[in-house]
Design a protein around this nucleic acid. Sequence first.
DNA 1: CCAGTCATGTGAATTTTTTAACAAGTGGAA
DNA 2: TTCCACTTGTTAAAAAATTCACATGACTGG
Lengths: 210, 210
Amino acid sequence: MKSEHIPKATIGRLAVYIQVLENLLRDGNEVISSEKLARACSVNSSQIRKDLAYFGEFGVRGVGYYVQELITSIKASLGIDRVWKCALIGVGNMGSALLRHHDFEKRGFKICAAFDCDPDKIGLEFEGMEIVCPTHLKEQAPELNLEIGIIATPPDRAQRAANHLVDANIKGIINFAPSRINVPKHIPVEYVDFFDHLYAIAFQITLGTD
Amino acid sequence: MKSEHIPKATIGRLAVYIQVLENLLRDGNEVISSEKLARACSVNSSQIRKDLAYFGEFGVRGVGYYVQELITSIKASLGIDRVWKCALIGVGNMGSALLRHHDFEKRGFKICAAFDCDPDKIGLEFEGMEIVCPTHLKEQAPELNLEIGIIATPPDRAQRAANHLVDANIKGIINFAPSRINVPKHIPVEYVDFFDHLYAIAFQITLGTD
DNA sequence: CCAGTCATGTGAATTTTTTAACAAGTGGAA
DNA sequence: TTCCACTTGTTAAAAAATTCACATGACTGG
């Protein structure tokens, strides 16, 4: 366990490893080598060993990795061996899809409050949660122990949502709106836009055909 | 315009540039320098110039880039200056959210057919589209000119969906299901899982606090 | 218990990506 | 016209990430 800087790409791969490992476990595999796991994840086996080495020594030489144990170790390394409470801002198309997405809890995240500034939506019940005006975020965040903010507003409202979150002392933000936001630099922000992937596919197809 | 290998990270950034440029255009900016664009995207200005250089010379020395022109050029470079027809497999939570997501067309992608193997869903109309059994994919794909497959099934069905897509001669696949798929290597696959980003946020928060 | 096989963890070599630096081109003012 | 302030495109340098290669430890069968 050496505490150097950990590449962002490593974190992305760890998420892949978890996914593949859980499927392996479901299929009854108890042990796996970095070589086999590598093939399943389409990466190099050294890559896997190096990624894991940032966090500790999880394998047994001559044997491999115990699948269940490795899953647990990776989750602990990422800090997802507990439940993170989230605040959702913006209950439109994307927002309500997220509220309905029941994998959240299974994966260690729980949307505990939903906010929207549309007067027609405020007060409505959605998936067992009352939609509240974002001005109440500041008082609710400490009460409910909200740590992560999820922005799912239209792009022009994203910055305002971010301001509310920062003001409420939220610790990290994930932004589904297609616009950049400015927040104090100690607060991590992740942008999610699956069109990026569609662009990547379109580009790769285009490359191959001309 | 030199036709070297283009880093995947470059493609990801180009998507960001488009997003920021479109917001700039909406705010009335006609020209922008790589330096200002860089700040808006939180990257280095050399990075931007280098990314663009893979595809051509789009700027004017001493002046900068004409915003509208640059957007058009980037889109053409990525191959998204046209509409890509998509087939959706799996009309569950995720799938129906995608069908309702009206940005698709605005961004150059159109879901032209929806498939699901659940007998209760087959025949149903959804967002003006009839849900069809995936066995019909092979005959419909050429008729409708479907080029990209979108998998939104449960994880254990993803491989079967992929097989149908490959069989129907689809050119690229985007997989929203949380499992890896195997396809012939000339077919590009992109995996989308926004929990990756939640993990990244959780990790970054955890890093800062212990 | 020893030999042979397997697979990890890691330092060194390689490759890739990012950043810095600057020559070359642009436009405007004097 | 000439000078000056800008900003690109590109080459060179630096940094970072990936892959290789192997010493080290673990298990198995004889």
